Amino acid sequence: MADAARKIDEQEHSDVRRSARASVYVNVDITSEHNFWTDMTMNIAEGGVFVATHQEVPLGTVLVVNMMLPRERAAIVAFAEVRWTRAYSGQADVPPGLGLAFVHVEDDGLTRIRRFLATVREPLFFED
């Protein structure tokens, strides 16, 4: 399938999500076969993570993701496949990035992700 046909926008992707997703902004170190870089997560779910980045990575590429969730003592290390990409659009509220699906999460990482998702809540806003 051509890359263009597999690229989907955020709204279409949200329709196929199977698990709860939480907004979380943490640094994530990513390693591919030929590169290493640090970017920022935007949200995380049991099945994967969205990483805001200008890096262009082909669909299907498996990356090593190393991230430290809030209130955790050790980093979570996972292998994740690039499932979708979003190119730079010029809109500040729609960052470019990679939709990554976890292929394998090491040790108790999945348990720690589930615990984080169960305890995090969206910020509350109060009008004056």
Rank of each mutant, 00 (worst) to 15 (best):
P58Y: 10
S19E: 10
T41V: 05
A45N: 14
A45Y: 03
T61H: 10
V62T: 13
V57T: 15
V51L: 06
V64K: 07
G47D: 15
E56I: 13
N66V: 04
D29K: 13
G47A: 13
A45M: 08
V28C: 10
N35E: 14
M40R: 13
V65I: 15
N43K: 05
N27F: 13
R21F: 09
E46F: 08
G48F: 01
T38Q: 13
S32G: 15
S19A: 13
E33S: 14
H13M: 11
S19K: 10
S19N: 14
E56S: 13
D39Q: 08
L59V: 12
G48A: 07
E12L: 11
V49F: 01
T41P: 01
T53C: 09
S19V: 05
M67R: 01
I30L: 14
V51G: 00
V65P: 01
E46L: 11
S32F: 06
E46G: 07
H34W: 03
D15N: 11
H34K: 09
A52S: 13
H54E: 11
M67F: 10
V49N: 03
V65N: 03
T38Y: 00
T38N: 08
R18C: 07
N66C: 02
A20F: 08
S23P: 04
H13D: 09
N43S: 05
G48S: 08
T31C: 09
V62D: 06
E12M: 08
V24R: 01
E46V: 12
S32L: 09
E33V: 09
G60A: 08
Q55C: 03
V51T: 04
H54A: 13
M42A: 13
V16W: 05
R17E: 04
V16S: 13
V62C: 04
A52P: 03
V24W: 01
E33Q: 12
E56Q: 14
H13G: 02
P58G: 06
G47T: 14
V26M: 06
H34G: 01
D15T: 12
W37E: 06
V16Q: 12
E12V: 12
R21T: 09
T41E: 05
H13S: 13
T31M: 10
E12A: 15
N43L: 01
V65R: 02
T31Q: 14
I44N: 01
E12G: 06
F50V: 00
T61I: 07
V26E: 10
A52Y: 02
R21C: 08
H34Y: 07
T41N: 07
T53N: 06
A22W: 02
D39I: 00
V64Q: 10
R18G: 15
S14F: 06
V62E: 07
E33Y: 04
T41L: 04
V16T: 14
A45G: 15
V49H: 02
H54C: 04
S32E: 09
H54T: 13
A52G: 10
W37H: 12
T61N: 04
N66D: 15
R17V: 05
S32D: 11
S19W: 11
D15I: 10
D39P: 02
G48I: 02
V65A: 07
V26P: 03
W37Y: 15
V64A: 05
L63P: 00
H34E: 12
F50E: 01
I44L: 11
Q55L: 03
E33F: 06
N66K: 09
R21E: 09
V16D: 07
T38R: 15
N35T: 14
E12P: 00
L63R: 05
W37N: 04
N35M: 10
R18V: 08
A22D: 05
S14R: 15
F36W: 11
